[in-house]
Design a protein around this nucleic acid. Sequence first.
RNA 1: GGCGGCAUAGCCAAGUGGUAAGGCGACGGUCUGCAAAAUCGUUAUUCACCGGUUCAAAUCCGGUUGCCGCCUCCA
Length: 476
Amino acid sequence: MAIEIYNTPTKKKQIFTPLNEGKIGMYVCGVTVYDMCHIGHARSMIIFDVIARFLRKKGFQLTYVRNFTDIDDKIINKANQEGKPFNEISELYIKEFYTDMETLKVKRADKEPKATEHITQIIDLVKTLIEKGLAYESSGSVYFDVSKFKGYGKLSSRKQEDMIAGARVDINEAKDDPLDFALWKISKPGEPWWESPWSKGRPGWHIECSAMSTHYLGPTLDIHGGGRDLIFPHHENEIAQSEGAYGKEFVRNWVHNGFVTIDNEKMSKSLGNFLTIRELTKEHHPETLRLFLLSSHYRSPIDFSKDAIHTARGSLLRFYETLDRVASAPKTAKEPRLKTLLNEFDEKFDAAMCDDFNTAKAIAHIHDLTTGINRTIDANPEIADDDIQSLNASISTISEILGILEEAPKKFIDAHKRSGLVEIGITDKEIKEMIGKRLEAKKAKDFKKADEIRNSLLAKGIALKDTPSGTVWEKV
RNA sequence: GGCGGCAUAGCCAAGUGGUAAGGCGACGGUCUGCAAAAUCGUUAUUCACCGGUUCAAAUCCGGUUGCCGCCUCCA
């Protein structure tokens, strides 16, 4: 099935065809490493992780490049505040980034270039832009002359006149025009610097992405991604730089993800609702976070709340419980009973992913599959070996693409049960004893006592379930 | 002030021309000592509002209202 992807400048879904058949070059704007990553970063990283996984699964030879901005005003500020060299800050947060990504099961990109390691390419690109008359040097800094690039604004659907009318751009005397942006910044005393033809200085923010993407993927990228907020000015400026320098279409398909809000408010440090990945992964299973973030379409905004995460956890548990039912079903059926269901699922799941990476729809199909399996087992618990194999194949596709359902069902269910027992102030052993006492009461037909025991546990957040194979408990 | 996006049930959320996916919640049935889980059924004659195009509109066009984002660092 053909893959359709929404393209930001055309505002339409279009059939995706890479420049070179079978090969895809994808560049995603990574993070500026000056602080811990938050749930918004998690969303972006997970979405592009899923896109990369899916494209590979579809058989494309993908080269995925995701950069680190490791030199920047914010990094310098932080370094000054803490009295440390800037690279100590950037290195620390790169390390923390990797820790978080590993927890979230976000795979590494093929190339993860850092701006500071590509100063040569950056300087070459700036030189080219000056030679072409698209950039000018002023007081040791170099600026891109926006008026010389006719396509400026095509990504973000803005006209240059409108932007000037906006007049909320800062006034910098070195610039010819407020819309012009820095390619190279002369360094102030005490700031880090690199030698260049213009000054001891450092690259502007936008230039690194143009320089590094071309270095690793060539002048035309099949896919370029990042958060919505990067559309303007960052990506608009990248287009100006790259198309200005190389005269070729820079990006065939722009992909931008929506924001995460918290209880319907934008995340910000001043509001104090800044949720770091580190805090979240302490409390929630990574698959719960992934499922939550993937349960809305990537372009839509998504609101983080206790309720929403609770729902995601419930869904995940439902999936695992069904898988566990299948695993513990007698393998005595002669004929496969899940085949049609699974074939249908495989097709629909693929179709959903091909449709602009519609993970929300894909997850709905997992729910349908779960219902179908439960229904089949309810009617008759026997399962054929063939069914197990087909199901495993479908589940491993889900795992490979979405990065969920990778755990052994029993293990996941048990871990879920045990999580939070400490806070409740009860041990596994104590619960088992209570269950034993209740069983005795039940045998003696003392249902009043049995119910008392069950209710007292429920009050603590432990629910009991009587199953054919005995009583089990779980955390509410 | 400029530009852009969004508005689907109690809540979350798919659906971009062919007659409203999925989840949570709620209610009723099966199962159970009773529950829980699972399952079955019910839960939007209707997609913010007003016009228009069309045989046909949640989907396209125009307008109104509301919310959000970007224009300064930002996933």
